[in-house]
């Protein structure tokens, strides 16, 4: 039986390539033939390169498309559906990376790590009392959005720091709450006054845009920390600035901003208890390896006659 031909038209990690090489004929992104994938591809692996309806109509052998990552906005899903080609993605692969990043950011804020490093390098403040921080053990973490990432976060803070985990997520059933081991709080405004650390793990939608704004900061403890590694826009940055300025919040860490990358003169950068990273939640070698292996596995499964996993169309 002839081997399947799989095109990988965007770069993926070597571990995925090695797996594919053992199981199929492949054409990689740096091969000039890569652009001819509609001619004879059985499977297609993509990251950012668009897939058009015109290409899909020509691709008569194509049986599976898998995106390395989550967003499928560059694929003509209607055209794929019309041809009966499953379009898959790889959700959940980055959960560990995002979870760990948010913990690192929370600790960096609590203990002023980035500020201290900055001051030492520039020959600034050397008095240790300028870096008084706070501990997190035994305190309460509030999780907004208790999905793949949020549930993982809960287990980590509970297991490592003996924290009490409470959550707000209007889309979970009671059985899901029990299984996730997180205390359900039905209203966001009831969660906010109870937590020492608020960590955001929901998607950006009309419902969540600006969800953490001035009224919400007013309900939080002045000793609390906010971390957002989900999406910019969920936290109102001007309201966050006002809360920090007036001492109504201990500190905050943002991996995501309303406008990315944030300007280097962003007003939030004036606070010692503010940490910024550049949307690196999933930016991780382990994530890339896992994702590359999974994207190859999902395509091969379909080519070998099994059901498509994580199919969007």
């Amino acid at each position: 039986m002839a081997r399947f031909k799989v095109y990988v038209i965007d770069p993926i990690n070597r571990k995925g390539v090695d797996l594919l090489a053992r199981r199929a004929e492949m054409v990689l992104w740096d091969d000039p033939r890569a652009r001819d994938w509609p001619d004879d591809a059985d499977g297609l692996i993509i990251r950012d390169t668009p897939v058009t309806g015109e290409q899909l109509r020509r691709a008569t052998r194509l049986k599976a498309i898998c995106k390395h990552g989550v967003g499928l906005e560059k694929v003509d899903l209607a055209a794929a559906r019309a041809r009966g080609i499953p379009v898959m993605n790889t959700p959940g692969v980055n959960a560990e990376a995002v979870a760990e990043l948010t913990m690192g950011i929370a600790l960096a804020v609590a203990r002023r790590i980035a500020y201290c490093d900055r001051e030492l390098r520039r020959g600034g403040e050397t008095g240790r009392e300028a870096y008084d921080g706070m501990g997190l053990a035994g305190k309460t973490v509030g999780i907004v959005g208790v999905g793949n990432i949020g549930r993982r976060i809960a287990r980590k803070w509970q297991g490592g720091f003996d924290m009490t985990a409470l959550g707000y997520d209007p889309y979970l059933t009671d059985a899901q709450w029990r299984e996730r081991g997180v205390g359900k709080v039905a209203r966001l405004h009831d969660l906010l006054p109870r937590v020492d650390l608020l960590t955001i793990h929901c998607p950006l939608s009309d419902e969540t845009r600006g969800m953490i704004g001035a009224p919400e900061f007013a309900l939080m403890k002045p000793t609390a920390i906010l971390v957002n590694a989900a999406r910019g826009g969920i936290v109102d940055e001007e309201a966050l600035y006002a809360a920090l300025k007036e001492g109504r919040l201990y500190g905050a860490g943002l991996d995501v901003f309303a406008v990315e990358p944030p300007r280097s003169d962003h007003p939030l950068f004036s606070f010692p208890t503010f940490v910024a990273t550049s949307h690196i939640g999933a930016g991780n070698i382990d994530t890339r390896e896992r994702c590359a292996v999974q994207v190859v596995e999902q395509v091969l499964e379909v080519l070998e006659g099994r059901a498509a996993r994580n199919a969007a169309a």
Binding site: A110, R111, R112, I113, C116, D117, E119, L120, R121, T126, R128, E129, A130, Y131, D132, G133, M134, G135, A137
Partner: peptide, 13 residues
């Protein structure tokens, strides 16, 4: 990463 001997510098400790 450099910090200023602040291992014990938390409110609780």
């Amino acid at each position: 990463i450099a910090t200023r001997h602040v291992g014990g510098y938390s409110e609780e400790a």
